Simulated assay, not measured.
Amino acid sequence: MFDTLFKHLEQKVKLEEQEKALIPVFFKTKKLKKRQFLFQEGDYCKQLAFVSKGIVKSYTTDDKGNDHINLFGWEGWWVSDFRSFICNEKAILSIDAIEDSELLLISKDKYEQLLEAVPIMERYFRILYQNSLVTKDRRLISSNTYTAEEKYKELINTYPFIQQKVPQHLIASYLGVTPETISRIKKNL
């Protein structure tokens, strides 16, 4: 389960062998079946989750019961309700599995211990958070200024495998459009 994590880490930082041996101590493993929740809105998010296999989705649910997908997390992605995790507040997001998934979980205490025991992890997470901010900025700009077709094309160009892995109605939710709009766009392309 840790191969995906180490591959991801080494894309960002250089790890020594003793650091590699130490890192797994801080994590717990969890398997989610398709549609099984990691946590739900209103729970307290007590862990950061690294997706080592599978795909999960992070979303909110409105008053009418409609889901609004915040992000998809596939192999090599971290997912959480960061506000809940950092501030110890109730989660505003829910995370569940789109397909059977395997996760590596780290609690806030273990996260802090990891950063002390393996200092290069501070740099790793700083790089991760910087990239996350850039991605969120791009997503906000796309959401506010692009047409539905432009949003869809950008998503497909960035993640070409998404059409095979994620159902169309979930892609529509992520883009803030209807499934019928996605069908129309695909037909026109």
Rank of each mutant, 00 (worst) to 15 (best):
I98T: 08
V56F: 04
M1C: 11
E116N: 13
K7T: 12
K28H: 05
K30T: 06
I23W: 03
T158C: 00
I162R: 02
W74I: 09
A21R: 10
L38Q: 06
T29G: 07
S143A: 14
H8I: 09
I86K: 13
I156H: 02
S84L: 00
M1V: 13
D100E: 13
T147P: 05
Y129P: 12
D3W: 04
I171F: 03
Q36T: 09
S142H: 01
T181H: 03
K151S: 06
E99I: 09
L128C: 11
I86Q: 14
E10H: 07
K108Q: 08
R139Y: 00
S84V: 02
N144Q: 13
K34G: 02
H8A: 14
E19K: 04
T135C: 11
T158G: 00
F26K: 04
V177W: 02
K7A: 10
P160W: 03
I92G: 13
Q130E: 15
K46M: 01
T135K: 15
F161H: 06
P179F: 03
K187T: 06
L32M: 10
K33C: 11
S183R: 00
E10V: 08
S58E: 11
P119C: 02
L155G: 09
D137P: 08
G76I: 12
S142R: 07
C45D: 01
E75A: 09
N188Y: 03
R138T: 13
R83H: 15
Y111T: 10
F37N: 14
